[in-house]
Design a protein around this nucleic acid. Structure first.
Lengths: 145, 145
DNA sequence: ACTTGAGTTCAAGTGCACTTTAACTTGCAG
DNA sequence: CTGCAAGTTAAAGTGCACTTGAACTCAAGT
């Protein structure tokens, strides 16, 4: 009968993350494993969610340290509940929103810079994203403060 | 009379980039300078635009190598025309569009996973009907790539 | 002339996120 | 039981993007 836990190779295959990276994450305290009598790692299936989460967060440009801090809020001993994940995901949702808003602002501004041909730091809105943004007035970029 | 060129300190102050970073960019061929009789760097004002562009592109997550390749298309000898910049900016515009789309997909997917409380991108029925992705081991990369 | 801040080079160091290497052990199929 | 893929460790190496340090020169004000 197939056991419920995953070997490092299985977790690697399913997560798309190299075994060496998984060991590295574990060393840094982002994921956890138990050991067999022969000292091999065995992962709970819930660790798959952690790994997914790590990769998503990295795409959004969050450092492993910050990811670890976020993951610390998940229960160590028990499998996270839906509520645990929801709380955490909501936080990352705003992180994503911020990131998207930034990119859109960047894009809009770049459009503006194409128009004026400036790209000069002194006047460029990219480096002075203040009142001018509000005056510019289109797009959903004020999702967050 | 104030000369039209900038010292490395002035360029640093105006661009918000450390002198050491500017030397590094120059070493890597991203920006260029002339030298005074005393061997000090002097920058054309157009270099300010290059530096701005480098920082913008970095914000979007582009490597210095790719940025250098893009900047190679700008004329070496003369100040870039508006048309030069427009051509380049248009390319980055699509880069930005791609990334924004990616982030939005990520956010929407995360929303869905919050809804079902799973966050297991491999098995989430909403986004990966069936378990075929898990069998392929594509993981988050499927979503992200 | 003297002092001070800004500039110069080259080499080495830093931080992040891993990957690779070497030497060794475990687990499973035949 | 054997063979071999897959696992283990610690340590060193990689690539990127810079920063720091040492030892020196240049430019400008008093």
């Amino acid at each position: 009968m197939k056991p419920v836990t995953l070997t490092i190779g299985e977790l690697a295959a399913r997560s798309g993350v190299a075994p060496s990276a998984l060991r590295f994450y574990e060393e840094r305290g982002l994921i956890h494993s138990t050991r067999t009598s022969g000292n091999q790692r065995r992962y709970e299936r819930s660790e798959l969610r952690r790994v997914s989460f790590i990769r998503i967060a990295q795409q959004v440009g969050v450092s492993l340290e910050r990811i670890r801090d976020a993951l610390k809020e998940l229960p160590e001993g028990r499998t996270p509940t839906k509520a645990d994940w929801t709380r955490l995901s909501a936080r990352w949702r705003s992180e994503l929103d911020e990131r998207i808003a930034l990119m859109q602002r960047l894009r809009d501004t770049l459009d503006g810079c194409i128009g004026c041909g400036c790209l000069s730091l002194q006047s460029c809105r990219l480096y002075n994203p203040g009142d001018e943004l509000a005056a510019q007035g289109s797009g959903p970029r004020k999702l967050l403060g």
